[in-house]
Design a protein around this nucleic acid. Structure first.
Lengths: 243, 243
DNA sequence: GAACACCGAAACATCCGAGGTCTCTTGAGG
DNA sequence: CCTCAAGAGACCTCGGATGTTTCGGTGTTC
């Protein structure tokens, strides 16, 4: 095993064992390199790798630190990974999201604070007049993130965030300028919001299921229709709504 | 932004754009470094980072290749990330697993082939005589992985695999030598297997829920009882079963 | 007394070049 | 046709030199 990989493991162990706590500063490069028995070059490779997955945070001119290691931070790294998946696996991601999103929505109906629910409602009102596609997608992301956050489970929230990456492109594909999709999205978002506000977890779950399943169904039919040309689906079904 | 990070993005883009397909070989270090406009050292840091998340695969003496980029491979990297989470977030992971596992089990009841179901049953029989703790945990992992795989969704399968990491320790904590836990685990595994074999997705889902919820409940009570001493929970409730 | 600008130390960023090690290929020999 | 040894190609590791950034102390100015 390359010395760099050994170094990665050693640093990992130092963190897991508690020798390095979140927020702690690592010894300087030269020192740590000597301690781990390798050159600075190789150590830097290890640090860079751990940096990519948000375990370490290097600040030039200052030092290298262990991040907070919070779930949202570490799971964030998954977004990077998810970006690599090609369109033919988007459906698989969406299927997982269809499992998680309703559960998160139901949890949100139980655990969200009144203040958060108010803010959620405010998000819906922000789209009063004709929005741009970018604004719509951004608002949509925010809406779902707020619900995921409201589930009270940071792991669930981060996971949903990561899974939204691949579906984001689908959202754009979706003719968001088409009145049917926009209106339906608003309707379903409103329904989800009202179910949460009414503290009706099962109703909220059902609406979320309908919501995600709509996109899933639309995407599935589109992908099968256009075959390999999955980058720019042309056709659309007026029943589905953007998620 | 550091040149290394730029290099990471460029390589990422080369892959996403299709310039580099899965299995393709990258230009040699010196050549790629010149092309990206940086030194070999910095390039190596970028490659190492992409290596950690299984996007690239370097083989000494041969070359650097793009991996298959299959979901299971990329999601595998999450296992590494998950390792960093401390015990106080294990419950959050378990809660997510409690959402996914029943769904996966239900899907497995629908999609698993007869051959796979037969193999699943064989797994149950392998534990006939008193097993060691290691064998039990390994068998348990295999059982759940086979079901997850049977869901037909590789993303879901990999995700469950990753989430099983943190719970694995919990499995060991759990007094697996206690007859109650072992027997209950076997009972529930058998029930899940029979529900799948009978092609009863809802029944399978329910058993899976019960199964995971049991551990969750046990772990929750244990963690609250022992407070900060979560590394070696002493108490146990005979109702729960190892997952 | 407080705010600001300057300066030096510390630490990371980047680069370069020299050996070392491993893998694959090639071709001679059996 | 198979085996094995030599060579080329590619990555691995190292050490040092130089550039950049940040932090903290110091002195000046208002």
């Amino acid at each position: 095993m390359p010395v760099t990989d050994v170094a990665i493991d050693k640093i990992k162990d130092m963190i897991i064992s508690g020798e390095l706590a979140p927020g702690d500063r690592l010894p300087k490069e030269a020192e740590l390199a000597q301690r781990l028995g390798l050159s600075r070059s190789s150590l830097r490779e290890a640090v860079k790798a751990l940096c990519l997955i948000r375990v370490l945070d290097v600040r030039q001119g200052d030092g290298t630190y262990v991040t907070s290691l919070e779930p949202n931070l570490l799971l964030d790294a998954m977004t990077f990974v998810v970006d690599f998946h090609r369109d033919d696996t988007v459906l698989d991601f969406l299927a997982v999201r269809r499992i998680l999103e309703p559960a998160a929505t139901a949890l949100a109906a139980l655990h969200m604070s009144e203040d958060d629910i108010t803010e959620l409602g405010a998000l819906l009102d922000e789209l009063a007049d004709a929005p741009t596609v970018e604004a719509l997608v951004a608002n949509d992301l925010q809406f779902h993130r707020k619900i995921a956050d409201g589930s009270g489970n940071p792991v669930l929230c981060s996971l949903l965030d990561s899974l939204s990456g691949p579906t984001a492109r689908a959202r754009i594909w979706r003719g968001l300028t088409q009145e049917g999709a926009v209106a339906r999205t608003r309707e379903q978002h409103t329904a989800i919001y009202e179910a949460i506000a009414a503290r009706e977890p099962e109703l909220a779950r059902s609406w979320a299921t309908v919501h995600v399943a709509g996109v899933e169904q639309w995407l599935r039919s589109t992908l099968t229709q256009t075959g390999t040309d999955a980058d720019s689906p042309a056709d659309d079904s007026p029943q589905a709504a953007a998620s």
